[in-house]
Amino acid sequence: MDAFYASVEQRDNPDLRGKPVAVGGASRRGVVAAASYEARRYGVRSAMPSVTALRKCPDLVFVKPRFDTYRAVSLQIRSIFAHYTDLIEPLSLDEAYLDVTENKMGLPLATRIAEAIRAKIRAETGLTASAGVSYNKFLAKLASDYRKPDGLFVITPKMGPAFVETLPVGKFHGVGPATNAKMNSLGIETGADLKAKPLAFLQRHFGKAGAYYYGIARGVDDRPVRADRIRKSIGAENTFFDDLTDFKAMQAALQPILDKLWRHCEGAGIRGRTVTLKVKFADFQIITRSRSNPDAIGGRSDLETISLDLLRPLLPPPKGIRLLGISLSNLLSDEADETDGQMTLL
């Protein structure tokens, strides 16, 4: 979906149409959950602190999120998907993978199905969606972002590998800002640069993710669309370009992680009883620490308190910390049986 939360707000409130809109809190500690395309022209982005967003766009209109409404619209859109295929793997409220190799309409071309779905979404919800069509998940995701908003782009098997070579690695799904910066420092700016690196080099610098990067640089992604997974936990994490050793720096680094995780909890109507802190050291050693509550975590402040309580006994760290992550498990929600393993938000 295109700027989903903000587009729903503009649909439901005509006074917001054509204006730069941010869904989120305007307070000093507020964070932008979603930005309309009018706001994005000023450089406003999701996960940006609200004070930064207002500096970039003084006319920005903040709207409090209505997650119950977003969930209802999301279910409406998912029911449209189900007219065409049962192989639906939701990524979030506003995005999903669909496998239409064998589809309910018997249509021979995935492009025709994408066009039909986009038209049906517009007719039934008044919202626009962008679609990417390709032969694997990685390329379909790239294609879906290529002509936003309200776009459709197809990456065929013939053009796939060459298409990947031309793109900056920062555009790749699964390459966040810290990984992008690290790749750039290693001389990897584009897909072609990534493709030129041997598998052993990528594994040495990026661990288990090295094999994934090696594959996608060649347009290869064998992950199936999985519609039958059971979600056991949700989590967010971030890799830092510079290793952290100071508690205040770690506390600050946890804030956007906690914000992203709690926004997803609010949006999906998910709560969890167990908080797990993940720490990856500079030498790639990983440790985790967990705490379970008798009841579900009630708010973001509680999540932050428990996360910091889990972090403090590890200080001072024996070596630099290159990654921090927080996850919630023992989930309680109507959606807890929808999607297996941990869903990572970053």
Rank of each mutant, 00 (worst) to 15 (best):
P14D: 01
I113E: 09
R28E: 08
G219S: 03
D302P: 00
G24L: 07
R231G: 01
V169R: 02
G174T: 05
G191V: 09
E124D: 13
P198I: 13
Y42N: 05
R289Q: 09
L167S: 06
L323A: 12
F62N: 08
L186A: 04
A253L: 07
S333I: 13
A39Q: 02
V225F: 07
T179K: 02
A22P: 03
L254M: 13
I306F: 04
D337C: 00
F172G: 11
P316K: 09
A252Y: 11
R291H: 14
R263P: 00
K104R: 15
K232H: 12
A178P: 02
L87A: 14
Y213W: 05
G235C: 05
R41N: 03
S327P: 02
Y146A: 14
S185T: 10
L54W: 00
Y37C: 07
D86G: 12
Q342I: 14
D99Y: 10
F247Q: 11
V44C: 05
Q76W: 13
P157H: 09
A143Q: 05
Y70E: 10
F206S: 08
P58F: 06
Y97R: 05
R312E: 15
G174N: 03
M1P: 12
R289D: 01
T305E: 14
S46D: 08
S144D: 08
R312M: 13
A116D: 15
T239Y: 01
L75T: 07
G106Q: 13
G160K: 01
L331F: 12
P318V: 11
L324E: 09
F172S: 08
P14Q: 05
H205E: 14
Q10G: 01
A33T: 09
L152I: 12
F163T: 14
P294H: 12
I321H: 03
N184A: 15
D150C: 03
T125P: 08
K19V: 00
D221K: 01
R122S: 12
H173Q: 10
A131G: 06
L54N: 01
L16I: 02
R112L: 14
F138V: 12
L93Q: 06
F284C: 02
S327F: 09
P149I: 01
A53C: 10
D12H: 10
S7C: 09
F247G: 00
V23Q: 02
F172Q: 05
A129D: 10
M1I: 03
E165W: 06
R322V: 09
P316L: 13
A211Y: 05
I234N: 02
A236I: 00
S46P: 07
S307L: 09
T245N: 10
P224L: 04
F206G: 05
P108Y: 08
F206V: 03
T276E: 08
K182N: 10
M48Y: 05
K120W: 06
Y5A: 13
Q203A: 07
K197N: 03
E165Y: 00
L167N: 06
Y37G: 10
A196Q: 11
N136K: 03
R291W: 08
K260Q: 15
N103T: 06
Q76T: 12
G106L: 10
K148W: 08
P108L: 11
S50C: 04
A200T: 15
D193S: 06
G219Y: 01
S74T: 12
G320C: 10
F240M: 11
L258M: 04
N103R: 11
A196M: 05
L303E: 09
P108H: 14
L60G: 07
P313K: 03
